[in-house]
């Protein structure tokens, strides 16, 4: 289907009756996903958002339930996940990361009710990347700037109009019968194909072939002594990463009123694996850095047969000491 740009506003206003809208909103530091009212106050970002779309499904701070303790016992009140959402302008790498988070939080066996409810309630409107950034390497990891994994709809910017690919029933329900859309013609499809080929031609490649097999036997390799050395041990890479999903659970209680919080946590922090005994199985930054690489490129593959990196490039862009995961992967490949 096709929607002309001047009609997008009408489409979004029509959605507001049934959905809350989230879109990339510009902040001082860069765009982040936030609630919006229709078509104003936000814009499709040129590259990617600063924070990934994961925070819409796995918020950095989330109240799981509240409770009151008294002499009569404990009363628990569960936090409820809000209604239906349309998430606008998700790049294909971020959308694909949701399919990986699904394996952890909405897979066989374990179904996290909060995450699952948000996933079921949210329509992901993807936006193809006509101009991938210099730090993008999604194609090396099985993704594509025009990839559809994790999207309910994928929009392709054709200049004065968007080509709309309908990918799921949820996506179909959003656009079906809406007067703003018209059937796509051959010229539209050809224009999108040309943009896709152009985008693919701009992608950098990173040697990830065989990295898993290398990592299977590199746990005790001296390589880690070198690659971690400049790491400061902050959580920027993990917190901006669309696939990092480790969390902490804490109870915060004041005068018998308690809140159970789920908050992001990071393998980069010493406290992450500190035992109650005082022992820490990852005592230095070397072990913590290794864990981040191992989790993405080995353990996740062991568990889910997929690499937990979508090549969005955020860790490269925002690392305060310019640790470049592409260089680390190249070193592992060569190791």
């Amino acid at each position: 289907m096709i929607i002309r740009k001047e009609r997008v506003n009408d489409f979004l206003n029509g959605l507001r009756a049934g959905y809350r809208l989230y879109a990339p909103v510009q902040t001082q530091a860069g765009p982040v996903f936030a609630p919006v009212n229709g078509a104003t106050g936000w814009s499709w970002p040129a590259g990617n958002t600063l924070k990934s779309a994961k925070e819409v499904f796995l918020p950095q701070t989330e109240t799981l339930f509240t409770y009151r303790t008294s002499l009569d016992g404990v009363q628990v009140e569960e936090a409820r996940v809000e209604g239906r959402v349309v998430l606008l302008g998700v790049r294909p790498c971020d959308a694909r990361s949701l399919t990986m988070l699904d394996k952890v939080f909405a897979g066989e066996g374990v179904r996290d009710p909060y995450y699952t409810a948000r996933r079921e309630n949210t329509v992901v409107l993807g936006l193809a990347c006509n101009e991938p950034c210099g730090t993008c390497f999604c194609t090396s990891l099985g993704g594509s700037p025009f990839g559809t994994a994790g999207c309910d709809l994928l929009w392709v910017d054709l200049g004065d109009r968007y080509l709309v690919r309908v990918l799921t029933d949820r996506g179909k329900a959003l656009v079906e019968g809406r007067p703003e859309f018209a059937p796509a013609g051959d010229a539209d499809l050809a224009a999108a194909r040309e943009l896709e080929e152009g985008a693919l031609g701009r992608m950098g490649t990173v040697p990830v072939q065989g990295v898993k097999e290398k990592l299977d036997r590199l746990f005790a390799d001296p390589l880690w002594d070198r690659v971690y050395e400049k790491c400061l041990g902050c959580g920027t890479c993990t917190y901006l990463c669309p696939t990092c999903h480790c969390f902490d659970l804490t109870d915060e209680v004041i005068d018998g009123l308690g809140v159970r919080l789920r908050t992001w946590d990071a393998c980069m922090y010493p406290l992450f694996t500190l035992h109650a005994s005082g022992h820490n199985p990852r005592p230095t930054q070397k072990e913590r850095f290794r864990q981040r690489i191992m989790h993405k490129f080995k353990y996740f593959v062991d568990n889910f047969r997929e690499t937990a990196c979508v090549g969005c490039g955020r860790c490269i862009r925002y690392c305060p000491v310019n640790i470049d995961i592409r260089a680390v992967l190249a070193e592992i490949s060569a190791g």
Partner: peptide, 30 residues
């Protein structure tokens, strides 16, 4: 993310007050 703290040469405490769990000085909510 504590990049500020970790990039600072003067922030070298073995255990930062924000990481202390007993006592917990700082809530986890962001």
């Amino acid at each position: 993310c504590y990049a500020c703290r970790n990039a600072c040469p003067m922030c070298y405490c073995t255990e930062c007050f924000v990481d202390s769990s007993t006592p917990r000085w700082l809530g986890r909510a962001t």
